[in-house]
Design a protein around this nucleic acid. Structure first.
Lengths: 195, 195
DNA sequence: CATGAATGTTTCCAGTGGAAATATAAATGC
DNA sequence: GCATTTATATTTCCACTGGAAACATTCATG
């Protein structure tokens, strides 16, 4: 691999993904076009076809990378022996912070039609992110009812809660009063752990 | 107003909005283009400019109509003397049902960049929808902590919960087990009312 | 070293939103 | 009642988009 200008790029697949992430940061989702991304990587606009098939394929790879980063961000600064509460706080806060810090990428990750939502690599990264949330909320005594499937319901509710909070924050639907309280740990009820 | 083909349409503004809603239903958000919408209304692709300025203006009007319908749907089948629990159930369930029944419209309504999010008419309809949710959750004894701004926090959390649930359902992020439990009232904890 | 596979380029096409100039109809003023 | 202004819609043009197809170059493998 060299940086000299050769006919074959040498690392195009990876370069296209990072170019895409850069464009999302600088120009938002609307600015992320095939041609824009290819130009930034220094190739013609049809070169990505070899690696990703089409635009949706490229966006899928970028979104998958986004989930990878989200997973990492939810685990940031956690030592091996972090407590359950520390892990839970890091995961919840990390999720919301990530959405606010990378709104365009977040929008792409949760857009239904821009990506190939059935792509195995994407699905794997989505699952990895969700597993962090699920593990962090395990054992939370948040519902005292005796409905069945308590664990499954708890997972759905907590993911919904965190995701909805992030989504409404990023999309600006919260009103002015609400925007002053964007720390999810501050807004969330004091869920305690069982046992 | 006549249905005969005249140079002046006579009811173009309204027709464009309903055409847009039809296209969203039939072809999804990706199919909703200025030209597509104009053709369906029987005018040239630049005609909408007089009424909505540009594409974003048209999409803004369509989204506002969407919030209007959402508000109505959250209040469906409610008699004057409906109980708080009935109103809450109708609002929560109506919100999720609406998202699942009109996924493309819902996507447009909560997309940050496709609409003019500062538009007064849009903001008014967004607020109207939120007020339904807020009223329906008023008095819910959902958090026993003594943190300040309990009402504001409760509103944010419940909207987050319902919106996140709808969003994750529509976008297909819930896994197979979760997709079998898409009734939010069944998944939600048994929040009780105070007093 | 030759041949096939992988990787990029060039060229073309249909589609998009929008600007600008123009055409038509409606509304208003005298 | 007629002329002028205003509102509404069309036509034409442009830059941009994703993708198909044919071609060029390099790599990898026998």
């Amino acid at each position: 691999m060299s940086t000299a200008k050769t006919y074959h790029h040498g690392n195009l697949k990876e370069t296209l993904i990072t170019s895409g992430l850069d464009i999302l940061r600088e120009q938002g989702l609307a600015g992320l076009s095939l041609r824009n991304c290819a130009e930034r990587a220094g190739v013609s606009h049809t070169a990505p076809k070899n690696h990703f098939g089409n635009l949706a394929g490229l966006l899928t790879a970028i979104a998958a990378r986004g989930y990878q980063q989200l997973t990492a961000h939810m685990q940031r600064d956690l030592s091996e022996d972090a407590s359950r509460i520390e892990r839970r706080n890091a995961a919840f806060q990390g999720y919301v912070e990530f959405a606010l810090a990378h709104p365009a990428l977040y929008e792409l990750m949760f857009s239904k039609h821009k990506t190939n939502s059935g792509d195995p690599e994407l699905l794997a990264q989505v699952t990895a992110s969700f597993v962090i949330l699920r593990d962090a909320s395990e054992g939370l005594d948040w519902d005292k009812s005796d409905k069945p499937d308590a664990d499954l319901r708890a997972q759905m509710m907590l993911w919904s809660l965190v995701h909805g909070f992030a989504q409404l924050s990023v999309s600006g639907k919260f009103d002015k009063d609400m925007m002053r309280k964007l720390d999810i740990l501050d807004v969330m009820p004091d869920f305690q752990y069982r046992s």
